[in-house]
Amino acid sequence: MEPQWEHFPHQSDIGVRGLGSSKEAAFEGAARAVTAVITDPDFVVPAQEVSMVCEAPDDELLLVDWLNALIYEMATRKMLFSRFTVRITGHALQATAWGEPIDVARHQPAVEVKGATYTELSVKRDEQGRWIAQCVVDV
């Protein structure tokens, strides 16, 4: 199954959720959901590649670290990303994201994501064995 994503409601901010057949796929989906908070990911051309690594004591903190690493790259490089590959070994994550510099006219970026929070944070498998990775992001 290809990584999927969705948003879930939070009164002042927004929830991001990735779903997939593996933990990695769910993390990739959650990243795409972060981009979708800002713009339609289909409008983001995966032209340039950026690598990231992070490490955390458990899966949930690793998800937050991963999304925050992505938010940091978006903020400092002024880029948006639409394609992701994630590899997780133990509590370490290696990822590559593909994207392009922000084009305000074309992307119509709605809002800046300030950070991933621990609210509604969870990384787990549902009854069908599908991985779900989610948290609220502050905008």
Partner: peptide, 29 residues
Amino acid sequence: GLGHQIGTEFLKRMAVSAARYHIELPDRE
């Protein structure tokens, strides 16, 4: 961005160190 990054980094440090200081967090946030 500076405030956002300070919040991000210390949130993690405090969430991880809370147990060491015997702080029971009903919510990691």
